[in-house]
Write a protein that binds this DNA or RNA. Structure first.
Lengths: 137, 137
DNA sequence: CCTGCACCTTCCCATAATGGGAAGGTCAAC
DNA sequence: GTTGACCTTCCCATTATGGGAAGGTGCAGG
């Protein structure tokens, strides 16, 4: 099948399929007489694999590693370790985001949100509250 | 003061200070006889403002908007709205990440994580469980 | 047979924010 | 006067993706 159909069936854009090939995440596709790339069912599976791991937030480098594990039938320990490392990474980032949300809520709480211009959010941003002493000297 | 000191005092690298100037987030710095940029206390405050808003995850474009609100003494309503929109954005992203974590945990649970190569994670990635019917035909 | 349209090819450019590094000017201390 | 720590500008790389140009291909309808 042509790249367009492979793209539609896998959910990976044709542009990205070519890109993945160029960075050697995929082996060079078979070519037909006219130079068009030619894909089969197995290729669509690989593309779906890539799409799904990308959706789960793995970087292309990590996707490459997972793909290698898949192809080489390596011990499942490695796969599980990668998945768990990724979970930990996500949890660490969520923790940071929660802290940011707390800070923003805190700042927003002290801002009237009306027509007047005095909003402590902005002054706090230039000089964090914790670092300020005797604001009016 | 030179750019190096302004960088150290604000926590924004010299490289980034020049970049912010180049994209017009900052007004062109004053120059001394030798061509060196020259900064004062007010500039350091602005840089700290930028650093802090960046730390809170605002894009440079949003930082520019907040900076304009700060400088122009605009109604605090606008500031509060920006902060709240950002909170909602963070919460939406955290929700997505939580869903991904759930999926990964689910996948990892069915993987023995030992020396053997059969790990359903990888097969699920190529053909999501929900889309699979009668695996062995 | 020609035309149009949809598809394919490669190549270049842009994005967001940051860092690395080269080539060259400046300043201060010794 | 040399050394070393600054500063300047300019170019390049990163990550993953899309946009678009210029040109070839394939098929359907007139």
């Amino acid at each position: 099948m042509n790249i367009g159909e492979a793209a539609e069936r896998s959910g990976v854009s044709a542009k990205m399929i070519r890109y993945y090939e160029s960075v050697e995440l995929l082996k060079p596709a078979a070519r037909r007489g006219n130079g068009y790339r030619d894909y089969g069912e197995a290729d669509v599976s690989v593309l779906q694999f890539i799409r799904r791991t990308r959706d789960l937030g793995f970087s292309l480098e990590e996707v490459g590693a997972l793909l290698a594990l898949w192809r080489d039938k390596r011990p499942s320990r490695e796969v599980k370790r990668l998945a768990e490392a990724h979970i930990e990474d996500l949890e660490r980032r969520m923790k940071e985001m929660r802290a940011v949300v707390r800070t923003l809520r805190d700042l927003a709480q002290h801002c009237r949100g009306d027509e007047r211009s005095d909003c402590p959010i902005l002054d706090d941003l230039a000089t964090p509250r914790s670092a300020r002493r005797k604001p009016h000297q």
